[in-house]
């Protein structure tokens, strides 16, 4: 298997913002004292008059972005996932989602791979919070290049968007033709396969691809889907894959109770029911540790995906 290059999603986000700033004068960007970490600082260097640092005051930041949007701007608000979802849920609900305003919330440092900061900073329920909001679109890019494509698409899109990014440098796995035309609500098939479907989102997409390689050794031919839009979910692609392969495994760096996997399960239960298993954090908070240690301890490795796939195959009598 080829060795992937590692790149950072936050850098890609900063790059996209600068490009957008050059293309469009109606783009404004808001930070909450983390502009260096989330890379909105790069935009601030280029367009200081269009960057607003609200300090450690996320509620004010979100509602102010609603005001910007009400006055005709497209506003990006960015800080850590932990601070820009749960802490400001009501502001997002009332000020942004309900009036369907052009506010793009870009959350970085999502999931347990934040590492050493521990559970207080490891957001594992943001997809649940965001996907239950009417009018909200939820995107989880798989790597840095897809992050850039997703940010550009979100800016083009009319209405609220939540984009979830991680902290760490992660493998670039979307540099394939199938992933070049990013479209909100469209999943991409990263690898064809006939025996089982592995659906990944965010950093778990690369792991699904690795798991597929591993399964090949056991004569299991796995299809891999990159579910980069969690909402609206690409039901057509999912149902087709379920029909074609007859089994499914989902993988996400999120609480399995209510993340991408549960959304997939709901779609399948109502449309085409196949044996399925969800890989994710089993409804517990994280802790301090290195990314790799945490991924191992909380069940998010390639091996965990492979085991889940074997389990699904076994249930189908194979």
């Amino acid at each position: 298997m080829k060795k992937w290059e590692l790149k950072n999603q936050r850098d890609a986000f900063g790059e996209a913002l600068v490009e957008l700033g050059e293309q469009r004068s109606d783009i404004v960007v808001a930070s909450a004292d983390l502009s260096c970490s989330v890379k909105t600082g790069v935009f601030a260097e280029h367009f200081p008059e269009r960057h607003f640092n609200f300090g450690i005051a996320e509620q004010n930041m979100i509602s102010a972005c609603a005001g910007f949007a009400a006055a005709g701007k497209t506003a990006f608000a960015s800080t850590f996932a932990i601070f820009v979802t749960g802490r400001v849920y009501d502001q997002i609900r009332q000020s942004v989602a309900y009036p369907k305003l052009d506010v793009k919330i870009v959350a970085t440092h999502a999931g347990i791979t934040v590492g050493g900061d521990g559970a207080t900073h490891q957001m594992i329920e943001d997809l649940a919070l965001m996907r239950v909001l009417p009018n909200m679109t939820v995107i989880v890019p798989a790597d840095a290049p897809e992050t850039k494509r997703a940010v550009m698409a979100a800016a083009e899109f009319k209405g609220p968007v939540y984009i979830r990014l991680g902290r760490a440098n992660i493998p670039v796995c979307t540099d394939i033709p199938e992933c070049q035309d990013f479209e909100i609500g469209k999943a991409s098939i990263m690898r064809e396969g006939a025996d089982i479907t592995l659906v990944g989102t965010g950093i778990m997409v690369a792991k699904c691809l690795e798991a597929a390689e591993d399964l090949k050794k056991h004569k299991i031919d796995a299809k891999v889907i990159n579910m980069s839009t969690i909402k609206p979910m690409d039901e057509k692609t999912l149902i087709k894959a379920a029909r074609e392969t007859g089994g499914m495994v989902t993988a996400e760096e999120h609480n399995v109770m209510v993340g991408m996997g549960s959304a997939v399960a709901m779609t399948l239960v109502e449309n085409f029911h196949v044996p399925m298993k969800r890989v994710g954090i089993r409804d517990s908070f994280g802790e301090s540790g290195t990314s790799d240690e945490l991924m191992e301890k909380y069940g998010l490795t390639v091996d965990h995906i492979v085991d889940a796939a074997h389990d699904v195959m076994k249930r189908r009598g194979r």
Binding site: V28, E49, R50, F52, Q59, N60, M61, I62, S63, A64, C65, A66, G67, F68, A69, A70, A71, G72, K73, A75, D90, Q91, R93, Q94, S95, Y98, P99
Partner: peptide, 25 residues
């Protein structure tokens, strides 16, 4: 109606966004 309000405490922030937009424009 310029803003959807009702959950107390959010309107002044919205006004800030509108007023800053006026300055930018």
């Amino acid at each position: 109606v310029e803003a959807s309000t009702g959950s107390e405490g959010q309107g002044l922030s919205m006004g800030i966004g509108m007023a800053l937009a006026a300055k930018l424009d």
